[in-house]
Design a binder for these strands. Sequence first.
DNA 1: TATGAGTGTTAGTGGTAACTTACATATTAG
DNA 2: CTAATATGTAAGTTACCACTAACACTCATA
Lengths: 188, 188
Amino acid sequence: MDKTEQIFKGAIAVFIKKGMQASTQEVAKEAGVAEVTLYRRYSTKENLFTTVLKNVLEKKFGSHILEIAKEKDTELFLTNIIEDRLEVLVKNKDLVRMLLSESLRGNLTDKINLPEVIFSSLKKGLESHFHLKNQQVDIDFCARQLGGIFLSYVILPNDQQFDKLTSQERRDLAKKHAKSVLSTIEEI
Amino acid sequence: MDKTEQIFKGAIAVFIKKGMQASTQEVAKEAGVAEVTLYRRYSTKENLFTTVLKNVLEKKFGSHILEIAKEKDTELFLTNIIEDRLEVLVKNKDLVRMLLSESLRGNLTDKINLPEVIFSSLKKGLESHFHLKNQQVDIDFCARQLGGIFLSYVILPNDQQFDKLTSQERRDLAKKHAKSVLSTIEEI
DNA sequence: TATGAGTGTTAGTGGTAACTTACATATTAG
DNA sequence: CTAATATGTAAGTTACCACTAACACTCATA
């Protein structure tokens, strides 16, 4: 019965399907709320969009990367992070794709700009990990590699669905990717 | 003075900026042509869009990947392909980003769907290369890695501009990525 | 010269969408 | 019970846009 929750749920559902192109009418209908209520609360569609999305991002994509970064074994650390993020991203694939699409179009604030968010969070994690190990590494290159892996599973055609792998298979996959990333690091 | 060329150039310019959301009015203005001319020639905006984009894709992204695939040394082959495609993609970054955005929204035909096009073309190249070498490799995994690299340079924030690297630096970068991909292959 | 194809101009149609206004109703707090 | 606050309904405003119709103009070719 909480209107706010109703609105958020309806808005997310509609926005995932249509992005910012969705009309406030559709959102109102899906949320079971009068259109004018949306405007009274959020003033503009854009504000509704960013408000809702900021909220969702924190809930669904909040990461404990700095915890994971404490793992001393780099291969293990990479495997964990890949496994963790890949799962979240693929589980929310439609949402992620919508955010990427809007981001590429350039009408997203920094707070909900997924490439921005992912990349900077990865960099922080990597910095933390290698700082602890007192190891000098090209953080940008490394973060880019990881980001590329994630993007590839969200954007490229995907026949052998990641969703349908057993958790062991996922772990193996993550490990394989981790080794690939690792191979560009060890030379120090 | 060729109207067709005028229209194509104007349309591309506008579509790159705004995607399919661009209005036919804008296109007409940019092309220096009456709006109705667009409709007389292409019937619908969608048809104009796909016609123009199909044309551009062939011109700018046409690849000789099967030639490159003849290189026997896998590391060299990978380096060449990465260098080659990365250059094309980054040079046409705005176009690529627009196409990715539209593709993620799901309103693109197969012919101009960039992830589709890139992925299948990569797979063909890899298949050809490893077939020649009589080597069995997980093509999908490998193509995904390559695709991820490309996507990362187009989508992730990019401070140390790829554009501004010397050709030697680019080659080194491509080589580094190639080695990373290679490291997941050699185990056979 | 006449014909036809391609183009421009102008106006218009029908639809949609963001956002507003005015008023009525419901809900809640003091 | 009352007053403030949140909500719904319905109608409207303004702007944009895909697409069409009507008519006049240019120009090449037969």
